[in-house]
Amino acid sequence: MGKTKFGGQAVVEGVMFQSGNDMVTAIRRNNDEIEYFEMKRPQKNWVQKLKKIPILRGNVAIIESSIFGMKHMEYATDRYERDPEDDINIESEKQSANMAKIVLSTVIVGILSFLIGKFIFTLVPVFVAELFSGIITGHFGQVALETFFKLLLLLGYIYAISFTPMIKRLFQYHGAEHKVINAFESDKELTVNNVQEHSRLHYRCGSSFILFTVLVGFVVYMFVPVEPFYVRILNRILLIPIVLGLSFEVLQLTNKLRDVPVLKWLGLPGLWLQYLTTKHPGNDQVEVAIHSFNQLLRRDKA
Rank of each mutant, 00 (worst) to 15 (best):
Q9I: 02
E13Y: 02
Q18S: 09
D22K: 14
V24Q: 03
R28N: 07
N30H: 02
E33K: 14
M39V: 05
M39S: 12
K40Q: 05
Q43M: 12
K44P: 00
Q48E: 15
L50F: 11
K52C: 07
I63Q: 01
E64G: 09
Y75E: 08
T77V: 07
T77P: 01
D78Y: 07
D78A: 14
I90D: 05
E93M: 11
Q95I: 04
A97M: 14
T106H: 10
F114Y: 09
F114W: 01
L115M: 14
G117A: 08
V126H: 02
F149K: 08
L155D: 07
L155W: 13
G156W: 02
G156L: 04
Y157R: 09
F163G: 12
P165D: 13
F171W: 07
Q172D: 03
Q172H: 06
G175M: 02
A176Y: 03
K179I: 04
S186W: 06
V192R: 04
R204H: 13
C205Q: 06
I210Q: 02
V214G: 01
F218P: 01
F218H: 01
V219N: 00
V224G: 08
R232C: 00
R232G: 01
L234R: 12
I240A: 04
I240Q: 06
I242V: 15
V243K: 00
V243F: 02
G245P: 10
S247N: 04
F248C: 10
E249N: 09
Q252S: 13
T254L: 09
T254K: 08
W265P: 04
G267V: 05
Q274P: 11
Y275G: 15
L276N: 00
L276C: 01
T278G: 07
N283E: 13
H291E: 13
F293N: 04
F293V: 03
K301G: 08
K301P: 00
